[in-house]
């Protein structure tokens, strides 16, 4: 076995060390934010917190969870992410299947593909889009957060590339059995494409979880903001050159610890989902299992 050879062992030692260091480098900022969220206000505002909390306390979390807007926006985000991912994946997978066919099998595929790819680059900008949403009466609805982004062309192209790797023999067997396209997609393509589907679902999920601008512009009521939009409000620094700042107000804006706690709580769900999806693309079991 290759992994018992000496050069490979040396490589392994290096590899483990390197990846461990890399992981630490990636986690440091998060630990820093976590430390701030558990710190006292004064040291946090003066940037005296490193990787360990100073004046440890849980006040920031209590304040965050006490804010009803936070919980509301969390709920909007959950709805948006679940529904948005689902709809987007259905639309994308449905379209990617025919587009993964060869020209000879589906002549219009080239036209369709370019039709979609074109929209990756060209768009009319915010103004006509805003007018459109208004005319569709979609202002302040969950749909405005879901439908416009449902056709994720990037995901579609990746999906069609993954579909192309499905062994042709499987499809032909299904065709001979008299299966239609939809059945072929569901019973042949989907099971062998689970890693891809898990990956692209993750992309869609992360996209929905992190998007904040559409919520800000199209939700006419701040109660309907998804979490990412809500968090933006908290993180952005206010410019005092324009407002009559009074010392009484300033208490509210200087809550660096609360900001840190909210960032962390905002990230938590998506971190939690990751390991669940991870098993689909860490192990190369899927195709092997089908092949048997």
């Amino acid at each position: 076995m290759y992994y018992k050879t000496k050069p490979y062992r040396i490589f392994s030692i290096f590899n483990y060390t390197f990846l461990a260091v890399l992981s630490i480098l990636c986690i440091i900022p998060l630990i820093h934010i976590l430390a701030i969220s558990f710190s006292g206000k004064a040291p946090a505002n003066a940037n005296l917190v490193g990787l360990l909390p100073v004046d440890f306390n849980l006040e920031a979390y209590a304040k965050t969870l006490d804010n009803e807007n936070f919980l509301k926006s969390l709920w909007v985000a959950v709805q948006r992410t679940t529904l948005g991912t689902l709809i987007s994946m259905v639309v994308v997978v449905l379209a990617a299947y025919p587009l993964s066919k060869e020209n000879s099998a589906f002549r219009r595929r080239n036209f369709y593909t370019w039709f979609f790819v074109f929209t990756m680059l060209f768009n009319g900008g915010l103004i006509p889009f805003y007018i459109l949403i208004q005319n569709l009466n979609m202002m302040n609805t969950l749909w405005v957060l879901i439908l416009p982004s449902a056709v994720n062309v990037w995901n579609m192209i990746l999906m069609l590339n993954f579909f192309r790797r499905v062994p042709r023999e499987l499809e032909e067997a299904a065709t001979i059995d008299g299966a239609g396209h939809v059945r072929t997609l569901i019973s042949v393509y989907l099971p062998v494409s689970l890693p891809a589907i898990a990956t692209l679902s993750l992309f869609a999920m992360v996209f929905h979880w992190n998007s904040w601008f559409d919520g800000l512009i199209f939700m006419t009521d701040h109660k309907n903001y998804p979490l990412a939009t809500f968090l933006q409000t908290v993180i952005v620094q206010q410019d005092f050159s324009k407002v009559s700042a009074r010392p009484e107000d300033l208490e509210n804006i200087s809550q660096r610890t609360v900001k840190a706690a909210q960032i962390f709580i905002g990230m938590a769900p998506i971190l939690f989902v990751y390991p669940l999806l991870q098993r689909f693309f860490v192990k190369g079991i899927v195709i092997g299992a089908v092949k048997e």
């Binding site: 006292g40 206000k41 004064a42 505002n45 003066a46 700042a245 010392p247 300033l250 208490e251 200087s254």
Partner: peptide, 14 residues
């Protein structure tokens, strides 16, 4: 003048 409300008082705590 309002810096006396924020952020200056933090220095007394730190």
């Amino acid at each position: 003048y309002w810096m006396t409300g924020w952020p200056l008082p933090d220095v007394k705590q730190n």
